[in-house]
Nucleic acid binder design. Sequence first.
DNA 1: TGAATATATTTGACGCGTCAAATAATTGAC
DNA 2: GTCAATTATTTGACGCGTCAAATATATTCA
Lengths: 159, 159
Amino acid sequence: MQDPEEFTLLLKAAYRENERRVLEQLQLLDITPAHGEVLRVLNKTGPLSLGELGEYLIVDTGHPSRLVDRMVKLGYLNRQPAPGDRRRIEISLTDLGIAKVEQIQQMRKKLIENAAPFLEQNSLEPVKVLMRNFLAGSHWLKKIERRLELNQSSNFSDK
Amino acid sequence: MQDPEEFTLLLKAAYRENERRVLEQLQLLDITPAHGEVLRVLNKTGPLSLGELGEYLIVDTGHPSRLVDRMVKLGYLNRQPAPGDRRRIEISLTDLGIAKVEQIQQMRKKLIENAAPFLEQNSLEPVKVLMRNFLAGSHWLKKIERRLELNQSSNFSDK
DNA sequence: TGAATATATTTGACGCGTCAAATAATTGAC
DNA sequence: GTCAATTATTTGACGCGTCAAATATATTCA
């Protein structure tokens, strides 16, 4: 086992670089990467409680109250007390939120097309394997599976 | 080119998981991962200006004023105006800072030993290649090279 | 029913990253 | 030498992640 310094430096840099690229696109839509994640998830799942939403986001603590607050204030999300359990709140997309999702999809298509050929299937595969091993035993993998499942189903807002 | 969704989810999760693991160790020393980076860099380079320090850190803007402020307040760093150029400040380790570095080295040794065999040279290599390709054209790679060079030289504080 | 327990969300505090504007000191052109 | 550009740092504003404590509602069980 060698010194993982180079790996962790690359990991941090790649993470930041990816955030930067997504931000660069999304700020044309006046949203942040975090907003984009929430919008895309809700578009697939339909209304969720705060805790359920958190299960789809790659963040440690599952209660993105303040992120949702900001997005409600900006007009992207509705929040109402969940019927039958007044502890929970039910979060759903507004029409503006749905419109943003469509713009995000456009943007993602462009990002993918522009991506250099280094993200080819065969070069990506060993990377995924190593990262999944790195994450073994953590709670992250469950979240990722949940997210990938969403890509198999049709959009909630299409129904 | 396939949808990079899985890659970016894994990237974010691996980044966060690594931060979490480092934090878990470093909080036994009452420092944060960011503190650890600064201490380790300065231990190798010797005194740096704020801008120079920033060139070694994996952050976008190269002026970690407030991070250094906090660390000065905590007693890990000295800051003095640089001789000959009163715009610059010169940042150096205090004795406490040097002591922390030694503890960090211990901690890193443990982290490396505990790391699962998935970080073997042969599985790591394609990951590094892909990440370097992903980062091509960005300013991150220069920073990483600077950091890796430090590992070739002896510690400043040993002199 | 009523008290203990569990669950969902909110809130406060803090560190960090990013951007842009402000300040301070130096350098360079003339 | 003076004034305009350049360079180094600071500061304010904001978003986000994390932790822990507080609040509110539901559930359980005696």
